[in-house]
């Protein structure tokens, strides 16, 4: 038989430590970071689509052949040379309305995301920096918001405040700030874990300067990735609210409410198909871009892992 004695003691902590470090190193060198955005064809396509939509939003009155609100007796005309996307039940030109819809959806999504980022980011910074009770309280608050499916809470909020563009934006900010709070908080915590802040304190650098110097720059990456992905989500949720009649009021050319209008008569497919495609392309572009950015900025998610 063999002559091996049972373990007398636990593994040497130093050896284990060294091993853990090597494992981490191995993981770091084993991964491939994502390619630059401009070398990913699909991300480039997303950028082009978004750029196109931005231009259309800027120059809508020039691009759109008709007034988006102008009614005409020519109702329910199928797509043709005069009306590329046909006309709706009131004889309005669907193409012009889709173009003008970008002037609502894109700026509103930007507004929702910037507000939520501002509020959530600030709260996250405070939670991560102060810690203790404040952190605990804020995190429980985010749990609370997460306890509701977003659209349902947003519906309840708009129903309580009354449907309007402003209240839809407000509702979506209320349901989406916690994500930012969580992400920024964990960025701050990572830094605290890395002793940046305590080192800063030792060096006599005040909390505000430490935040500006170290914490903010290090939170920018995750915040950009999240904000891009959330832009898509905001467009989607906003269109859902207005599809339900809880967003911008008619006759505003909003994509979600345009789809709703078309749902009344299936034979007039063009009334809802085109605004839906508009939502789809914008959201998809934001999502693709967000994914690509994430692969770049947070290599843990890189494709070739």
């Amino acid at each position: 038989m063999t002559t091996l004695a049972p373990d007398p003691v636990a593994p040497d902590p130093k050896a284990t430590d060294a091993l853990a470090r090597r494992r981490l190193l191995g993981r770091l060198r084993g991964r491939s970071t994502g390619r630059p955005i401009w070398r990913q064809p699909i991300a480039v396509a997303a950028l082009v689509i978004l750029g196109g939509w931005l231009l259309m939003a800027l120059f809508a009155p020039v691009v759109a052949p008709y007034d988006p609100l102008a009614q005409s007796p020519d109702a329910y005309a199928p797509p043709s040379g005069t009306h590329w996307f046909g006309t709706d039940s009131l004889g309005r030109d669907v193409f012009s309305r889709v173009i003008h819809g970008s002037r609502l959806s894109i700026p509103l999504a930007l507004a929702i995301v910037s507000l939520a980022l501002l509020i959530g980011g600030l709260l996250g910074l405070v939670a991560g920096y102060v810690g203790r009770f404040v952190d605990e309280a804020l995190m429980r608050l985010t749990d609370l918001v997460f306890a509701f499916p977003q659209i349902i809470l947003a519906m309840a909020v708009t129903a309580a405040f009354g449907p309007s563009t402003r209240n839809a934006v407000l509702a979506l900010v209320i349901v989406s700030w916690p994500v930012y709070a969580r992400v920024i908080r964990s960025a701050v915590l990572t830094m605290r874990g890395e002793d940046y802040l305590s080192a800063a304190r030792l060096l006599g650098i005040g909390p505000v300067r430490a935040l500006r110097r170290d914490v903010l720059p290090n939170s920018v990456g995750p915040a950009i990735v999240l904000a891009t992905l959330e832009l898509g989500n905001a467009v989607l949720l906003l269109s859902a609210l207005s599809f339900l009649g809880l967003g911008p009021r008619p006759p505003a050319a909003e994509w979600g409410s345009m789809v709703a209008l078309g749902s009344q008569d299936l034979s007039m497919w063009w009334v809802s198909v085109f605004p839906g495609l508009a939502i789809l392309t914008v959201v998809m572009a934001f999502n693709v871009l967000g994914d690509a950015l994430r692969d770049r900025i947070d290599p843990r998610y890189a494709k070739g892992r």
């Binding site: 004695a5 007398p8 593994p11 040497d12 050896a15 060294a18 091993l19």
Partner: peptide, 19 residues
């Protein structure tokens, strides 16, 4: 034997040699 302390290392080595 890298993660192990010296006594355990020796045991593992002896085991391999015996096998």
């Amino acid at each position: 034997t890298t993660a192990l302390d010296v006594t355990v290392q020796a045991g593992i080595l002896a085991l391999l040699d015996q096998l």
